[in-house]
Nucleic acid binder design. Structure first.
Length: 802
DNA sequence: CGGTTGCATGTCATC
DNA sequence: ATGACATGCAACCGG
């Protein structure tokens, strides 16, 4: 051990006879201070003594005392206020005394449950964090003052310094909107008189309009409670984070908001469903917002009353198909499992009892599986419970804790079935929760509107949930339906239905003198159309009205949305209504739409489409699936070949469109189309590079190899010469040399042999050979070389298969 | 042979 | 890039 140095940078003394503890160190332990510095620190005059002249001094917003900020020594003697400024701990402590009175506990809550430290009792997280009473109280007060300050701007705390602080606190509290008052309902039931009548009652009661503490209650609430469990239950930094999260999540205060007592709001207030970080738990700060409990205060209050307990929402999860399936395993979010469930070390886990809202107790096996050096937590045996709650994939299961006691509580919240309804759901005046809501629970994921503002986070969460539900339903659930089973469609077929987004403006990119359109927005499924050409070569586009199924002739450039009817026929005003006669008879369509002839397949389609109507959107996809190859047949028959990209037009000569459908048709060796020319150019470049590399390697190889390899070198040069000839030749040369075939559409695996038999060196082969590693050329015989070359697949990137 | 269990893998969201 | 998670699937087990 070396000699001690005072950790006061200004002092650095080493001669002190007595040493004192200073501030806590990040690395653990405390700063060592000499007697003098230590004494200053103990007396809270460290900053005044040692850096009075430095910057960073501010005044306590409450007492005006000067506080040095930004110094390690003063780290714990002040706190930052959300509304700006700092407050000294002395003032905060003083405030605490009054707040104890301000935090009036309803008489029906036992005092030892919620006393000054009641919340600590309720939330063992405090103990977990090792926060002492003083700190805890300070933190709590800090949260309180922050909350007040957040609402009341600068005045909040200043007011407290005058007159009766308690009164001021109350006054302030009355202006605190949802932030503070929401929590009141979260922790303190206000109505214990309601008998527990089971789920039905709970649902019913939840549907009833009730006092909405989320919204401002100017003078009615005597309770000033902190935002969310985490805010007060926490100590130290975590609590701040937690509160901050709560502050961030909760809607900003506001514009004047209709009050509970007002006529406007009577029975019409829909409680905002706000995702809030959970109260406690190990590592809950890492909990993804998607798992934050979103129970409304209303629901919570109701539930608390019904269960005669304090409910601490922990987390929730939207059930996946797997979760809700027969297998009976509910995958728990890892962070949630580790935060709120008992620690388990064995994979087998432990049985865990969870109560539902009817007070029925379920026992699940809480366990984990090793997964990618991590763990995957599951609750096993949930099927009976899931069935009992009548939830399914897409619905939400909620987990809470009943306090006191710490009993886990499982609840649920039904998703809205109708996606449209959900999408359009807004803040509406209803006499209860919105349709489709049930739960432990009640309301579904409403769009979160409060005070005329949406919460971005909440909205995001809501959107996420919607997306999630949609995903779940899209993914697997519906795949078991008969309809979905019909959905067999190739990628090429799907492409036929792609259209650019109506709002998308393409960016034109020029690659090798060819223009490509790039879209920032994904394509949409459009209505299937048929391109035709008349005797004189003029081109048309035909489509069917969704309503009357009559065919209409449209300009080739027309882009149709998935659903299209005659009323949208802006190109032919004479035929913009269904009564107007058809442009083209089905008989005339036959040459273009062979499916008319294909009675067999059509029969299948008629099962789904009795009227033979043109499907649209996903219907179109499904129909396309049923029709199978007809789709490609149709497009093959239509002039302009394929519709390979969203902006395709008949006659489009882009590199994508001019390729025939996969595996069908070939380019002639003499073809001078854009594709072939581009490939040739690219090939030329590749050959140049390859040749250069080869030359470099050759030099090395030549030195290393003996006479035998020298022979092989000649072989290689022969090959290289051939390759070079193929590459460097002009297009005219290409015509001559390409006795083999240029096949841009060949399946390399299938057609290798054919290529091998080709006498001349095709472009494909040449490119393949370019990609060959040099060693391939060093094989003993030319014959083998030839064979090897022949079986290298075509690869336009010049990368050969190794 | 059907159901269960444990793990592997692919996808997707988040960092 | 990484981790979380949804799900597939093979091995296992019991009737």
């Amino acid at each position: 051990m070396g000699s001690k140095n005072c950790m006061n940078d200004v002092c650095r003394g080493t001669t002190s006879s007595e040493w004192k503890k200073g501030w806590s160190l990040e690395s653990g332990g405390f700063a060592k201070l000499c007697y003098r510095c230590g004494s200053s620190y103990e007396n809270s005059v460290f900053c005044e003594t040692f850096h009075l002249e430095e910057s960073g001094w501010r005044e306590c917003r409450i007492c005006g005392k000067r506080i040095h900020c930004g110094c390690i020594a003063s780290r714990y003697v002040h706190e930052y206020m959300d509304f700006g400024g700092v407050g000294c701990t002395t003032c905060l402590k003083r405030l605490e005394v009054h707040s104890k009175q301000a935090l009036q506990i309803p008489s029906n809550i036992s005092k030892d449950t919620v006393s000054t430290n009641g919340i600590k009792d309720v939330h063992p997280g405090v103990v977990e964090n090792g926060i002492d009473d003083v700190n805890f109280s300070t933190q709590r007060l800090l949260q309180l003052t922050k909350a007040i300050g957040a609402i009341d701007g600068c005045s909040g705390l200043e007011q407290l310094t005058h007159a009766d602080p308690l009164l001021k606190t109350r006054q302030s509290s009355t202006r605190v909107p949802n932030l503070t008052q929401q929590s009141s309902s979260t922790f303190f039931k206000t109505d214990n008189s309601r008998p527990r009548d089971g789920v039905k009652n709970i649902y019913e009661s939840l549907a009833q309009p009730s006092i909405n503490f989320s919204l401002t209650t100017p003078s009615s609430s005597p309770i000033t409670i902190l935002p969310f469990p985490g805010g007060i239950a926490e100590g130290s930094e975590q609590s701040k984070g937690s509160l901050q999260q709560a502050l961030n999540v909760l809607p900003k205060p506001p514009k004047p908001i209709p009050t509970v007592g007002s006529e406007v709001n009577k029975g019409t207030v829909l409680q905002a469903r706000v995702a809030r970080p959970p109260a406690e738990g190990r590592g809950r700060n890492q909990l993804l917002p998607r798992y934050w409990p979103r129970i409304t205060d209303q629901e919570l209050q109701q539930l608390s009353g019904d269960l005669k307990s304090i409910i601490v929402p922990l987390f929730e999860k939207v059930l996946s198909a797997s979760d809700a399936g027969r297998i009976g395993r509910l995958v728990l979010p890892k962070a949630c499992a580790e935060a709120f469930f008992p620690l388990i070390n064995q994979s087998e886990g432990i049985p865990i009892r969870i109560q539902d809202i009817t007070a029925k107790e379920w026992t699940f096996q809480f366990r984990f599986w090793p997964n990618n050096n991590s763990r995957m937590y599951v609750l096993e045996g949930v099927t009976p419970c899931i069935q009992n709650m009548q939830v399914q994939a897409g619905d939400t299961v909620t987990f809470s804790r009943i306090e006191p006691g710490g009993q886990l509580l499982i609840g649920c919240r039904k998703a809205i079935n109708n996606g449209d309804a959900q999408d359009s759901q807004t803040f509406t005046s209803t006499s209860g929760d919105s349709p489709g809501e049930t739960s432990f629970s009640g309301a579904t994921g409403n769009l979160l509107l409060n005070g005329g503002k949406t919460s971005d986070d909440s909205l995001q969460q809501s959107m996420w949930e919607r997306k999630k539900v949609k995903n779940i339903k899209n993914k697997r659930l519906h795949m078991h339906t008969d309809d979905a089973m019909e959905l067999r469609i190739t990628w090429e077929e799907a492409q036929e239905l792609l259209r650019p987004s109506p709002t998308a403006e393409p960016t034109v990119v020029v690659v090798e003198d060819h223009e490509f359109e790039e879209f920032e927005e994904p394509p949409i499924f459009g209505k299937r159309t048929v391109f035709t050409s008349g005797p004189s070569g003029e081109q048309d586009q035909l489509t069917q009205c969704d309503s009357c199924l009559k065919w209409r002739r449209l300009p080739v450039h027309a882009l149709l949305s998935a659903k299209w009817s005659n009323s949208e026929n802006i190109w032919d005003l004479k035929r913009c209504s269904c009564p107007a006669p058809e442009d083209i008879r089905p008989k005339d369509l036959e040459p273009f739409v062979p499916s008319y002839k294909d009675s067999k397949r059509r029969k299948v389609s008629e099962n789904k489409m009795p009227k033979g109507g043109e499907p649209s959107g996903l219907d179109a996809l499904a129909t396309a699936a049923v029709l199978g190859d007809n789709i490609s047949d149709i497009t093959e028959c239509s002039v302009g070949a394929t519709t390979r990209h969203p902006r395709h037009r008949p006659g489009c000569t882009c590199i994508v469109c001019i390729q025939p459908p996969s595996g069908k048709g070939k380019h002639e060796p003499t073809c001078k189309c854009n594709v072939c020319q581009t490939v040739r150019r690219r090939f030329k470049t590749l050959m140049m590079r390859k040749k250069k590399r080869q030359s470099e390697r050759e030099a090395e190889v030549t030195q290393a190899k003996d006479r035998a390899s020298l022979k092989l070198e000649l072989v290689r040069e022969d090959i290289a010469r051939d390759v070079k000839a193929g590459a460097m030749g002009k297009e005219a040369d290409m015509e001559e040399s390409s006795k083999g075939q240029l096949d841009l559409n060949c399946d390399p695996h299938r057609e290798d042999k054919m290529l091998a038999q080709t006498a001349g060196m095709s472009l494909t082969m040449l490119m393949s050979s370019v990609a060959l590693p040099l060693d391939m050329y060093l094989t003993p015989t030319i014959a083998q070389n030839q064979e090897n070359l022949s079986f290298i697949p075509a690869d336009t990137d010049g990368r050969g298969r190794q």
